[in-house]
Amino acid sequence: MSVMERITPRRLPLPRWLTRAPLAVTLAAGFMVLMLFVMVFARVIQPYAFDYIDLMNRMAPPVPLEGSTWLHPTGTDTLGRDLFSRLLVGTQTSMLLALLGTCLGAVLGVTLGFVAAHKGRLWDEAIMALVDFQAAMPWFIIALAVLAFLGNSMVIFIAIMALYGWETYARITRGLVLSAREQGYALAVRGLGARPRWVYLRHILPNISGPLLVQLTVNFPATILFETSLSFLGLGIRPPMTSLGQMLGEGRDYLINAWWLAVVPGMTIFFITLSMSILGDWLRSKLDPSLED
């Protein structure tokens, strides 16, 4: 054994930041990559159509259990629809909605935060009053009523999800922009004659993206819980479409004879929120060492 070999430990050809991450973070990242894959390819990899009804094999349990069938290794629901296919499509719906809701909310909040910081005075007052207003509303309950009365429209549902949590982004952005604007680099670029939009988008935004990214990871699990809770209550995503919350709400009625119908989608939601929380915590400690706790 040569000396060199003893000094340099053998590494897998992985990026350094990944090999240094704790095991839990690696697992969480892996799971989220898997969920993103499902989000994109759910309809391609599903063994059956998610709404295909197989009445001969209703309420089949997953395979190791008594009475299961190899036609549906992960079991079927009360109408004989394949649980695995439904899980894939349900995950796709929940992930897509949460991603869309989080991103729209972030764009809205960040934009308003920039406007408040840039325009100042009346604009600032108005936007911050709106922020306070949004924060003081029982949004989940309002969403519940709005969905019940305005009906089953995807556009309204997405709008409600986008309005959930935008105020935090606005508050954070406004504060960050106000302090970033007075820093040397921003003053320098402005002194060189750059227009405000250029300074904000090309110089300040990249510099404040860290805390915003952390907020994104906090907001994502909250949004997924928001969607699944509403769908669980029978609002939000409704049959024939499915989401993880809708599956759980349906499965809840069959706890006595088919517990897996509720437990499998429930565990999926739990693992998604858990993974995002772990990733968010890790990201926070990486991006902002002063917050290390």
Binding site: P221, L225, T228, S229, F232, G245, L248, R252, L255, W259, A262, V263, G266, M267, I269, F270, T273, L274, S277, I278, D281
Partner: peptide
């Protein structure tokens, strides 16, 4: 604590009932 707040309350309720 991470496990606790990642757990959706409706699912926790169902698990407790089970």
């Amino acid at each position: 604590s991470v496990f606790g707040f990642s757990m959706p309350n409706f699912f926790l309720g169902i698990l407790l009932i089970l």
